[in-house]
Design a protein around this nucleic acid. Structure first.
Length: 210
DNA sequence: CTGACGATTCACT
DNA sequence: GTGAATCGTCAGC
């Protein structure tokens, strides 16, 4: 029936991404829907786990100290595009670039809950049946939604890749802030409460689910 | 040009 | 709990 293909998505607009507080944006992204549509094949998941990377002053960020390289260059562009990079030679990690030009803020999407296109997600992840692991963890999110490093720099206002608000409301008491995962190398910045999760959601990665 | 390594995941002990 | 997979990126020579 493909009833969702032509759905009128309410895409998040530039003013959402251009805001200056990346931590607030990371929190606001919880409950929004990450959508990909390639060759008419649509998949979407509700964001349930994010991490903020606070640019130049955040030791955990690739752009710490305003480090500009070919890879990080995209983080210095205007908010509202994708930063996708390859981790461990295996996993494509999807980030949302925020803030204005020359300020390299980004939000890592660590987990979503499948909304649309579950059959496609199963095919992409070589799974037989649906379970919580399909979109748990940043590498799995990209795999299920078909996101790869080819999409780095892509506008989130495009029709192939975007984030939408479908009026789903989250009770603030169900949002929990924790420390980020896998950034132990960043000293005291590893202790910052820059990871946001939806309490008790089974798709959230890591052991602690609160 | 070379070598070390990572915002991870999964199979296996 | 431990270790392998696997390759683009980046610093250093």
């Amino acid at each position: 029936m493909q009833k969702n293909i032509n759905k009128n998505w309410n895409k998040l607009l530039p003013q959402f991404y251009l805001r200056t507080n990346v931590v607030t944006i990371a929190k606001d992204l919880l409950g929004k829907v990450l959508v990909t549509q390639f060759n008419g094949i649509l998949t979407a998941g509700r964001i349930v786990e994010t991490e903020a990377y606070n640019g130049a002053i955040d030791k955990a960020s690739h752009a710490f100290g305003n480090r500009r390289t070919k890879r990080t260059e995209i983080m210095f562009s205007k908010g509202g595009c994708a930063y996708v990079y390859l981790c461990y030679g295996v996993h494509h990690l999807f980030n949302v670039v925020t803030n204005t030009e020359n300020i390299p803020h980004a939000v890592l999407i660590r987990a979503v809950e499948p909304v649309t296109g579950i059959e496609t997600m199963l095919l992409r992840t070589n799974k037989i049946k649906l379970d919580h692991s399909i979109t748990k963890g940043p590498g799995n999110v990209s795999k299920a939604l078909g996101i790869s490093t080819k999409l780095t720099g892509k506008s989130l206002l495009s029709d192939e890749l975007f984030i939408a608000d479908d009026d789903y409301k989250i009770n603030k008491s169900n949002i929990v802030a924790t420390t980020r995962i896998g950034v132990e190398y960043s000293g005291e910045d590893a202790l910052l409460p820059y990871r946001f999760i939806i309490k008790n959601n089974p798709f959230v990665s890591g052991k602690k689910n609160y």
